Simulated assay, not measured.
Amino acid sequence: MSAASARPALMLAYFTYFGVLGVFVPYFGLFLDGRGLDSAEIGLLLAIVTASRIVGPNIWAALAERTGKPMLIMRSGAVLAILGWCSSFADIGFWPLLIGFTLFSFFWTAILPQLEVSAFHFLNDDTQAYSRIRSFGSVGYIVLVMLGGWLFEIFGSEFIPASALLFLILLLSSLFLLPPISLSLSTSAVSQRFIDVLKNPLLLRFMAAALLLQMSFAPYYGFFTLYSRDIGYSGTQTGLFIGIAVAAEIIAFYYAGKILRNRSYKFLLSICYSLTVLRWALVAMFADNAWVLAFSMMLHAGSFAIAHCCAMQFIQQFFPKHFRSKGQAFYAGVIYGGGGAIGAYVSGLLWQDGAGASFTFLAAAGLALVATMLAISLPKVIPNAATN
């Protein structure tokens, strides 16, 4: 299948995948709050659910390598994630929610790393083509975020289970539009060498910076809708703020290929991470000013979109081709799983049902500052691990 013919299916897959996250990420805290959980319980649930993303991607990557069929792994993960999500329809307490969402999150991790690998496979490692197709994920996210703000005002937080389920089913359908691909990978000797690659000091420094940055996003992902509500913004206004962030993200993704071309990833990462410091500081101190809060949301273009494309560029260039599936899974597990889990748990402790909201975002700014210093220490050119 040619890159051109695969693009519509890839666009739809990214649109539906991030459409699910457009319901889950911004409104999940409100949903759990509506079910009667306090901030410590919300932080704990988010941390445990997110922790499943540490081991999940690596398990699914190992299965994809063993079978050589990443599309089968994605489709299976989507089916099982739907089953886990169905637990959200029952209001029967903290532990059933925890078990159901942990299963959902674990199976959910089967999808994105393999989708990224498949996308680069179909696009022949064209970063510019990838960034434009990836922007459809941001479109899906913003559509559901905006729609979610409206639905929240009408139905309250219980709009989430059915809305996310609909997009989960659409996601599964979109994955069947992608043709199967067979990736013939090396055998057991490769796995041993992969462990050696993970010990590379450059990779460890890059991962540490990305981990701290992801931890800094935890208050935003887990508590921003609650924060916005407590300040006095309506559900529609909150959806608009998040919509501004995602609109900036879409534009950044669309032009990311041109932005990255002939520019040092180190320079771009340093800029993006420093903008994140400014972003969380503004949210901490000036969130009651709608214009300042809207401006802080525009910084999402750098702190997420361009930073993500730089990270994907690093993974694609640093890991030899036969390691890229494992590299994507390792990155997803450590950064989104580990960083998200630690950040969510600590944020839940610091939040104190809203009393520690400003301090929590200031702490996030501090983490982003350390990440910036690590990014500045990286080399200008990404070496391939096979040459080190």
Rank of each mutant, 00 (worst) to 15 (best):
M1S: 14
S2W: 04
S2M: 08
A3M: 08
A4C: 00
L12G: 11
A13M: 01
F15P: 01
G29C: 00
L30D: 01
E41C: 07
L45C: 07
L45M: 13
I48E: 04
I59W: 10
L72D: 02
I73V: 14
R75L: 13
G77H: 01
G77F: 06
V79G: 04
I82M: 06
L83H: 04
S88D: 00
D91I: 11
L97R: 00
G100Q: 08
I111R: 03
L115P: 06
L115S: 02
E116M: 11
S118T: 14
S118I: 11
S118F: 05
F122N: 01
V143R: 05
L147E: 08
G148R: 00
F155M: 12
F159T: 02
S163W: 02
P179A: 15
S188G: 09
V246A: 09
Y255C: 04
Y255H: 08
Y265A: 14
L275H: 03
M285N: 12
L299G: 07
H300I: 06
A301Q: 07
I306H: 00
A307H: 12
K321V: 13
Y331T: 02
Y331M: 03
A332F: 07
G333R: 01
G340T: 06
S347T: 10
G348M: 11
G348P: 04
Q352W: 02
D353H: 00
A357C: 07
A364G: 08
A364R: 12
G366H: 11
L374D: 10
V381D: 15
T387N: 08
